[in-house]
Amino acid sequence: MGLEQFKNRNVGTQNYKTLDVGVSPQTGMERFKQVAKRTVKGELFVGLGVVMKAMVKALFADDMHTVKYPFEKMPISPRYRAIHDMLRLLESGHYRCIGCGLCEKICISNCITMDTRYDENQRKEVSEYTINFGRCIFCGYCAEVCPELAIVHGQRYETASEQRASFSIFEDMLSPVDQLNLQQEYQGFGAVSPNADENIKQTPLAY
């Protein structure tokens, strides 16, 4: 399916078809006729038929839409913006953050704070880093602005916790040094989800 029709936003020249909704009854007799017609026509039973068909399909054709959530999870888009991950350099295992402070600056809810210092190797070291998830609106600017791809949005969307601080510690967000092979790059804002092809359907716009 081509995307031309979606890209054409020039409404004026599009070929709309108008739906024939008929005329509203005016006189009593007309109204009576409409009622009678609708009663006999059995539209109500069509409705019954539809749901019955759905049930039969659900039960016998395995057309069930339920995802048994805590046990099964839907694949989420790589663009999904959940709790941040701080990534490491794959070669050295050192965290990527250089402490430039751009995330702190760009954060529109002012929830990122960092302390930096001059370290023994004459480099800038991030001595403390915290995100206040009570305030974070997961807008993704921090990941967008990060010049080192150090802070990214992870896939941890289950953020219920007893304490706000549960997710905000730098070490918690940092990918574990022994699981560097599992470290996921954030695909970014333009990325498509892994199951994007399955999800493509005709949307009403395409009719």
Binding site: V51, K57, M64, T66
Partner: peptide
């Protein structure tokens, strides 16, 4: 259960 099935859900499980 029945409503769930008719809506292609599982219902209590």
């Amino acid at each position: 259960k029945v409503l769930a099935w008719m809506q292609r859900r599982q219902g209590p499980l």
